[in-house]
């Protein structure tokens, strides 16, 4: 890795266990991000600054006035397609990261889900599970929210997901949840074997993690599904 990249990712390279090989693995990653609203803002910035090689953003909506409460969109972006508006902000942050709309049929190596509905979150997570790739699903709520970390073979999101309300208010604390979701995904990309399946609740800045468990009869526990 040349000095330019080393300087760019120096702080990340100082994380214990995270070194040159992990950074290069990130650089080869293709990350699909489902949803690009205000909740996703900090997570998208995190992924770019962490140095994922290719960022595929999937969101069919336009920037709404509430999206401007996040970290990504200026009020002037309201009304423009979220993907293009996000790309316009993110692309100048790093020449090492390619930022594109999610290409139909694209094959990601990891997925980060900021879905706008429960069914969309479930479908996106299930697609990632079937592809055998690490994924994180972020579930915001008014006080913070939760995220579900699903390395390959772990209990699926359907087994682990929250049953709490699915409101999506964009509050300042949501940025911490969003960035935490991205950070968990980055660590899984860097070393998929190092992370257990878990649910992390973040309420007013306090994180609580617990292992996820498989629901009886769930397809994610079928032959070849991997260890729990």
């Amino acid at each position: 890795m040349n000095d330019e990249r080393l300087e760019r990712y120096a702080r990340q390279l100082l994380v214990p266990g995270f070194g040159e090989a992990a950074q290069e693995r990130l650089g080869r990653a293709r990350v699909r991000v489902v949803g690009a609203d205000a909740v996703a803002s900090a997570g998208l910035v995190y992924l770019v600054q962490a140095g994922v090689g290719r960022l595929w953003i999937e969101d069919a909506e336009d920037v709404s006035p509430s999206d401007a409460s996040g970290w990504l969109f200026a009020p002037s972006a309201v009304g423009s397609p979220r993907v293009e508006a996000a790309r316009a902000v993110l692309a100048p942050l790093s020449r090492f990261v390619s930022i594109e709309p999610y290409p139909k049929g694209g094959v990601p190596t990891a997925t980060l889900v900021f879905a706008s509905s429960g069914p969309q979150a479930l479908a996106s997570a299930e697609a990632a599970r079937r592809a055998g790739i690490p994924h994180v699903v972020v579930e915001p709520d008014a006080e913070g929210g939760a995220l579900v970390v699903v390395p390959p073979g772990a209990p699926c999101y359907a087994c682990a997901r929250s049953t709490a309300g699915a409101g999506r208010p964009a509050q300042p604390g949501i940025a911490a949840l969003s960035a935490l979701g991205a950070a968990e995904l980055v660590l899984m990309i860097a070393n998929p074997e190092s992370t257990p399946g878990r649910r992390i609740d973040l309420v007013r800045g306090v994180a609580t993690a617990r292992p996820t468990s498989r629901l009886p009869g769930c397809a994610c526990g079928g032959p070849g599904a991997g260890a729990t």
Binding site: L6, E7, A10, R11, L13, L14, G19, A21
Partner: peptide
């Protein structure tokens, strides 16, 4: 810093 230790850390790896 932090490049001094980054360089050393990578060499140690």
């Amino acid at each position: 810093c932090p490049m001094t230790y980054v360089k050393a850390k990578i060499a140690l790896e």
